[in-house]
Amino acid sequence: MTDLPSKIQLDPEAIGRDLGRLVLTIVELVRQLMERQAIRRVESGDLPDETVERLGLGLMRLEEAMTELREHFGLRAEDLNIDLGPLGDLLPRSTFRD
């Protein structure tokens, strides 16, 4: 049996950062899923131009907002991920950009 740490350090700043990171990771997952779905629908060509434009604008703003929030918490793009062990990463690594 591994010994449990005798003391758990509660650093409020670290907790805030970790919580922010967790929330942002979930939001980023949803954002990426929406974006991929939007691209697929654009590819299938069954959306009117106006809808494509509206979708794209929304996703673009969302990405900008995500970048701002990330910087606010001092996180890099690749920090927004969760290692799911045998299932791999929550977010595909290739989608990260600097």
Binding site: V42, G56, L57, M60, T95
Partner: peptide, 15 residues
């Protein structure tokens, strides 16, 4: 004139 559409196309090209 269509920044949203451009954004989606750019993302598709990157993917």
């Amino acid at each position: 004139t269509r920044p949203g559409t451009s954004y989606l196309l750019r993302r598709r090209a990157e993917r």
